[in-house]
Nucleic acid binder design. Structure first.
Lengths: 101, 101
DNA sequence: TATATATTTAGACAAATATCTAAATAAAAG
DNA sequence: CTTTTATTTAGATATTTGTCTAAATATATA
């Protein structure tokens, strides 16, 4: 079994992506709206969107010419659970795979 | 203000490092003991230790010729808090800096 | 249909990362 | 004080990552 949350931790490792999630937490936004808030090019943002989508941290929906991004908290919860696990010695009943080859 | 938890998320992004933390959660170990559990070289592990130390996720203590590594959960809690923040729209009273240049 | 707007894909490139082997350092034991 | 054991540092290298510009795609509108 290989770690299903690897893409999530990778996604969270970048400050720009965390900032995107932070914005989306306040409400859905179009790619363009998000792009306005950052100093990097739209293609670069698009690349970050792809990583967030791959990690299932965001969902997308087309609305006319716009693509609306919104937060998907489900996977975030799993990542949290994994971190929580690091706190709680003893209870290893729901141990996760650690993906070391 | 620049993100103080950037090193933590970077540290957590690597599966080997997460596995190291996981082991330490069960109890402190020497560098050598940890190394035995992984298929990579000791210098490579040492590199990972440095990153974990820089993120303040582990502490070290010399015991004779051995160096004992143990988990430091403090910073982990802060990371958790940041993730938790992503869940709770509305309450922005303890908002964190997002470190986008 | 032609044009404008929104977003993504393609391809290039520099910087960061994970890994390795060889050498250095530190402590213990003979 | 020399040797062994434990760990780290140095330096090299291949891969991954974040960024860019230019081009492609998709939708809306004149």
């Amino acid at each position: 079994m290989s770690s299903p949350q690897q893409p999530v931790f990778k996604a969270l490792a970048d400050p720009t992506r965390r900032a995107i999630l932070k914005r989306l937490q306040e409400g859905s936004e179009t790619a363009g709206e998000i792009a306005e808030a950052f100093a990097i090019s739209k293609p670069s943002l698009s690349h970050h969107f792809n990583i967030l989508k791959a990690a299932e941290l965001v969902r997308t929906e087309r609305r006319g010419q716009h693509i609306v991004y919104s937060l998907d908290a489900t996977v975030l919860q799993e990542a949290m659970a994994m971190l929580l696990d690091l706190f709680s010695p003893g209870d290893a009943s729901h141990e996760q795979d650690n993906d070391v080859e």
